[in-house]
Design a protein around this nucleic acid. Sequence first.
DNA 1: TCTGGGGTCCTAGGACCC
DNA 2: TCTGGGGTCCTAGGACCC
Length: 427
Amino acid sequence: MNKPIFALIDCNNFFVSCEKIFRPDLEGKPVLVLSSNDGCAIARSNEAKVLGIPMAAPVFKYRDVIRNNNVVQFSANFELYGDISKRIVDVLNTITPRIEVYSVDESFLDLSELPIDDFVAWGHTVRKLIQRWVGVPVSIGIAPSKALAKLASDRGKKIPELNGVCSFIGPNSEVPVDHMRVMPVQDIWGIGWRLAPKLRAEGIITAWEFAQMRPQHAGSIMGIQGRQLIAELNGTSCWPLERIGKIRKSIMSTRTFGEDTHDFNVVEAAIASFSANAAFKLRRSHQLTTKATIFVTTDKHKPGYQRWGQEVRFDIPTADTGILASTLVGALQEIYRPQVAYHRAGVMLYDFVPDSQLQTDIFGKVDIKLHDGGRARMEAMDAVNQRFGKRKLMFAAEELAAKWQPKHNLRSPRYVSHWDELPVIKS
DNA sequence: TCTGGGGTCCTAGGACCC
DNA sequence: TCTGGGGTCCTAGGACCC
């Protein structure tokens, strides 16, 4: 077996880059993509970063900066981003099937079996390929471990001379130590805002100092992953490519409401809608659930923040929207208090079984009517919604949707997923 | 006025059992 | 005075990621 070689393909400012594909006039301008309710900035163009707008910044705090610099804003358009993401994975699949889709904008490739000598040149070729076929700029890091590949792609993005590609392997490659010496410890993949201050308190300021720590010492601060991270940064791979499509272990559907509400019917509609959404994702992953939790909360930024939850169990595993929605609305009735100003709610599903498994209740009986009848109904519903658009067919309890739905006033057209929103070319 | 949504993994501690 | 020890399962919470 060859020594491991990983490439990380990381899209630059991904959501913003997706919007720019259809709006080339935005090149060179500051652009933001906003979260649900147009609350936070979840993607920023380079020009917006230069203005000092941080990741996840609440936009109301930067209203003046945004206005004075004509920053262009979009409500998030996840259908569009999902489609673009898929196209990039399609391109990567033409290079190698040894690919791990790590997130919507990042994939690891295993290059160890490919006949590549000059990894820097290879990286620039792939960059151009994705730019030409999809239109999204990417950064590429190449290294003997995932943590180093991640570090390399970050450096490739930040250092203009590298032009988006940084390899720690092969001719013209970079030296990891040179980069780790100037990288703050909190920029390492796996070290977040809680661990960074602890490490700094120990005198660990740079990535290089972290990589030099005694593994046992790091382990005492951050557990097993700390020791693995140190090995990874020193070039020993501990985290293999996770090739097989990962089986989801939990599914969540949650939203902050467009405005706070006391109205049971509105919260009920939201729970029914989240149930439908989660159940759809569950069916798509070919699983059935045995447990679900609903939760409702007040506004966490106001004093007296509270959260209530209620768990339900299903003796017969299910992915049926009707069963989930009615059960979870029932659970809502148990915890609902009329005087509370509800700000957000959600549904979580977990403890799954494969849907190929013959379902029986705890006494070993198979409920044919519930099982097969329900499944046929769900398949019909998914087929209709697939063909005519999301939520064209839904359950009655999902009504009143308009009253809780988040605001998204700045959303761009869904160019690639809705016929009536196709881009128009004038000639 | 205005602060997202969706995941994973690890660990510590309690219950329970032999 | 001197209290057993160890294994497993479950849950809650903490930490991270994008």
